[in-house]
Amino acid sequence: MSVTAPAVPHAPSERGWFQRNRMTLTPLLFLLPGVLFFAVYVVIPIFQSFQISLYEWDGLGEATYIGLGNYQELMTDRAFEVSIWNNVKWLVLYLLAIPAGLFIALFLNQTVVGIRLYKSLFFFPFVLSQVVVGLVFSWFYLPREGILNGVLAFFGLEPVNVLGDPTLATYGIIAAGLWPQTAYCMILYLTGLNAVDPEQIEAGRLDGAKGIRMLWYVVLPQLKPATFIAFVVTIIGALRSFDLISIMTNGGPFGSTRVLSFYMFEKALSEYGFRMGYGAAIAVVLFLIMLIFIGYFLWQMWQDEKEARR
């Protein structure tokens, strides 16, 4: 066999293997560091937590396999039940941030002198850390020094000790959380309102739509992307609530303000003992609740992707 020149000349064969495969290799190389980091710190730990939740483990000594023992214990744990119910309260009430944010956005969507500054000042609570928001509101609620009771007294009402009362404390914390969350939803809607098609508004006006009807039938449908994002960040925020509870009540009074994220931390990493396995089991429950929403969000985004692909 003699080597003859191929009828169809090879793609420049002096170029190396890398050059020939560069369209597959380049994205892989670019992805590698990010994916590696993300796998080590996010993806793998999720599976590890599932595994740890099957053990009784103090974080230092030997771990003992106990199967679903931790989950069985959860079923009869009163504090766990309280935490779940509080999570439900957080989820439902936190969603108020969306209409409240829309309301403020509509109020501020004008072009008068200084309105930009007003918008910024309404928004900036969102930039504060939850720790600071928690402190600010715990002082706001102080029975004697707090300005809330000052205002109540001004209107001749009885003073309340919001954070000291087991029936009120959770609502007090949620109210504090709603403050920055509403600001976030407001800015989403302000941006959305900016992009509302003026011609459709005019057409609506000609058809005699006004006020609430205009808002509902003409404006809100155009604000759908903003509403979706507001919904996503509000749900995630509600289920992530930890900082405010830790700062404002530390779970009290009498454990009445615990939520899953806080109770998990308490069990795994605080003076109540280092029960890593039990904590991991609580985290798994929280994760599964979150997974319902994550699944929904991803499905929505998947629909958008398909549309964008033409």
Binding site: L31, P45, I46, Q48, L239, R240, A280, A283, I294
Partner: peptide, 24 residues
């Protein structure tokens, strides 16, 4: 798939990562 892994990971509760990340 990789893109959606990044998005999904971004939404998980911190607590599910806490014990392993601390341990690591």
């Amino acid at each position: 798939l990789i893109f959606f892994m990044f998005i999904a990971g971004n939404f998980v509760p911190f607590q599910i990562l806490m014990v392993p990340v601390r341990d690591f």
